[in-house]
Design a protein around this nucleic acid. Structure first.
Lengths: 224, 224
DNA sequence: AACGGCTCTGAAGATTTGCTGAAGATGTGC
DNA sequence: GCACATCTTCAGCAAATCTTCAGAGCCGTT
């Protein structure tokens, strides 16, 4: 899951970044609207946290840009408590949620999870695949109630493929979800992770779940 | 599907080429307008990506040339954000779409697919042929919901014949669609691919779909 | 600050898959 | 039946992918 934080205050930005990264999200941050738009053009974000008070290009313009180009990003508008006008404008322009400063971090986390569930049309936090269960909330995987011990990156890859079952995820897609915009890895790193996930699933008698689409990437067959 | 990329910046050109090739397109590239016109005179392209800022011969002249000679190519004009005049001129001259730099690669991909759909008058991404389904988006083929495991070249040939059903595709047509301008193969390579496609379809009880027009090439009968 | 454990990464080699052209078989029109 | 086009099979080659592994880095603990 990848997030973009657009927030003027460096203090808050940094603290949100660390907190969300800790929860397993991949996080890009920026403090101004112009850069935010540049980021949005290059990457895909599941959720954008958007403060409306920004230098250079204001938050509403960023919101317009998102709605214009990237319908798949959910937007949570963050704003100081007294800016009621902002609030109205934000919802009119299609913000998906709204938080007043100061807000509770757990509240934010809950709303992010809620938007992600909505995006992927999940009715609860667990996806079932025959014997396999992927718990989005816990970031854990189990086969027949036996936990599969995946590392964070391994889990992220499996979750991405699971949530996009039936679609081929390219190396770019995967890299986008695992790494923030400052990182850079060879595709072999992803191959190695895939290999590890397959090996660990195989130890639980789950084979051929992750399939290779040569020249494109990886996918999991959709189940009805 | 064959594309021509006309783009001054070598960096961007190369990255687009690799990215699009990976998505299954056949790609020619050039960095100047003179060469672009030469390419256009020799090959057929489904889509041309055209940067208007070019050395030697400017982009608008290339666009005129395309519209003058080659009505079957769709054109996506690429331009820096502030060149609004270019935009107006481009659309006046009949660009089919327009993208500002920097643009999102997936956005580009989506627009290319959209133009291809329009060109072949497809209403969605799946072409149905009795039991046979060809999914343009996924580059996959299925018979009675059973996937037919085609290699990239095999798929490309079948897609070409399908999208041009009722028309005979010559060896030249097919070679044009499968290979960029720097490759060269014997016609037997294509015969071998056709043979493989027929064999794989036959395994799914689909026979006599691809017909041979002796001395000309291959075709699939149009269905109403 | 040092330590231990875990994870990540890129290299290297093994393996798999796909492409091509050759060669011989088969088919077609005359 | 002949000449030629097309079909099929196959093996060598090239490229993509898989697997393993060791070194580096990170994180929490002491």
């Amino acid at each position: 899951m990848k997030l973009l934080i657009v927030e003027d205050s460096q203090r808050l930005r940094k603290s949100l970044q660390l907190g969300l990264k800790h929860l397993g999200f991949t996080v890009d941050t920026t403090g101004n609207g112009r850069e935010a738009i540049a980021y949005l053009r290059v990457n895909h974000y599941d959720v954008v946290l958007l403060d409306l008070m920004l230098p250079e290009v204001d938050g509403l313009s960023v919101l317009k840009e998102i709605r214009h180009r990237k319908k798949e990003s959910a937007v949570i508008v963050i704003s100081a408590k007294d800016q009621v006008d902002d609030r109205i404008l934000g919802l009119d322009l299609g913000a998906d949620d709204y938080l007043c400063k100061p807000f509770d971090f757990d509240e934010l986390h809950a709303r992010i999870k809620s938007l992600i569930r909505r995006k992927y049309q999940l009715h609860n936090n667990v996806m079932v695949f025959g014997k396999l269960k992927v718990d989005i909330d816990m970031r854990s995987v189990a086969v027949n109630k036996q936990a599969v011990n995946l590392t964070p990156n391994e889990y992220s890859i499996l979750a991405l493929l699971t949530m996009n079952q039936g679609k081929v995820m390219t190396f770019n897609n995967i890299e986008n979800h695992l790494y923030d915009s400052y990182s850079s890895v060879t595709r072999n790193a992803i191959e190695a992770h895939i290999s590890a996930v397959r090996r660990k699933l195989k130890a639980h008698q789950v084979t051929d779940l992750i399939k290779t689409r040569r020249g494109f990437g990886y996918y999991i067959d959709a189940v009805e």
